[in-house]
Design a protein around this nucleic acid. Sequence first.
RNA 1: GGUCUGUUCGUCUAGGGGUUAGGACACCAGAUUUUCAUUCUGGUAACACGGGUUCGAUUCCCGUACAGACUACCA
Length: 511
Amino acid sequence: MREVRVRFAPSPTGALHIGGVRTALYNFLLARQLKGTMILRIEDTDQNRYVPGAEEYILQSLAWVGIKIDEGVGVGGPYAPYRQSERKPIYMQYAQQLIDSGNAYYAFDTEDELEVMRERLKTAGVALPQYNSITRMQMRNSLTLLEEEVKQLLEAKTPYVVRLKVPRKEEVRLNDMIRGWVMVHSSQIDDKVLMKSDGMPTYHLANVVDDYLMKISHVIRGEEWLPSAPLHVLLYKYLGWEKEMPQFAHLPLLLKPTGDGKLSKRDADQMGFPIFPIDWIDPNTKEKAIGFREAGYLPEALINFLAFLGWNPGTQQEIFSLDELINAFSVERIGKAGTKFDIHKAQWFNQQYLRAKSDEALAEYLLDSLSKENISCTKEKAAKIASIMRERITFPKDLWEHGKFFFHAPTTFDENVASKRWNDDAVKVLNAYKIELPTLATFDAPTAKATLEKVTSELGIGTGKILQALRLSITGAGAGPDLMMVMEIIGKDEVMKRIEYALKTLNVKVA
RNA sequence: GGUCUGUUCGUCUAGGGGUUAGGACACCAGAUUUUCAUUCUGGUAACACGGGUUCGAUUCCCGUACAGACUACCA
């Protein structure tokens, strides 16, 4: 059986889109499952669109989500270089081969001449003017010009492109692993430019040549490539590489959460979720886009979420580690239809992965946040906080954001709760409780509770009636984790201080 | 406009000629939690439409509608 070699081949034209990460993931899963090789190739044949830093960004993003590159940019390998701009000399020789075999030709038409041709055809009623088997005979190319003229133009260094000579009548067939047989008539394909006038190949040529040279066995890419796949098939055929042609799998697109259309950065911005794996600062606009990493998504959760966008194992299991994904993955189970991007599901996966962590691991997240705030805290205390906060967080940063009261006494109180729960009974109980606390030798959740119950029963007031008021004075809010545990963690002295402060500031308001 | 691809609950999807069309997320309700969250239980909710083929179609075929992609010397 053929050795499995797959590639992820992004262009460094900006940040890596989350859809690109999924494409990389599917490639990676297949490679790992079939003991193959995962290759990273950078398709930077368009110098105009090159964005500095994009390549580094791609590398970092893949590393963060755990997609390991076996060969290619950043790691090297037997088919180096893996950056197409560095492979420039390779492509012309294959273009030449196509010209020599009569499957491609030189075209000297200028932008203006092309424009004139399109206009002329449009007025003649052709909806979509193309450079094709019919129109090429009216243009300036090596098919219409005399051999001598062509030679002179080339020697005079006249700018030219190399175009594929697409046959007029031919059924081009392609067996896609996801979509089955796809047939396109060659009359629908135009004479695509293979080599640009700057000497760089276009995607089509570079892609086919490199996939062949790098012995790629499977091309897994986005559905946007499906329309040009027949063209690639033609290229393999004319280059004499039909037997080596990789298997194709065209992935369904990622769609925007509401409405229709493919997922764009705009949608993500509007709905307030990331679309890039890690933070990206646009070098031109200096605009910063928050990444999934910085937003608090765990890489393993993101991967699990992404894997399920368009694929499923056919079982009820939903939580999959990377190793489990590698085992369960199969191209056959990839869906055909476009997939709407639902950030809720991503959050749910994140929660699941976060909860599976130990208190100690969660404590590290909290400690991270605290160090940014210059707050010191022992590991033990952080772990204790983590243990009572673990069921109520979606992101690691929630530990701090929802638990600030562990470190800062409230300065304001939720007015809604205060107006409903802060009453004479509450004040009576809190005053008595405050007096009772100093007599306690030890202070923990059980004693805090027992003492409170003792006070309330002596006063003949139901504990439940005033618990909200107590919570309000300790945390400033009406909702939160187990109050007795909270008090244990912040300690007796702090509890007393907070009750006193609340009594002082809230009494005035309610009176 | 043309070509290609697609269409099962709001979303991700399972399924497949005869099923109470299954699960998950989200949503709603109840229970637990004297709060909130969690957890548990339950609920709402789908085969785009029209023709065939068939005893029978959501499933197969053909149309239609809708959607998306592509239609550059961008990838």
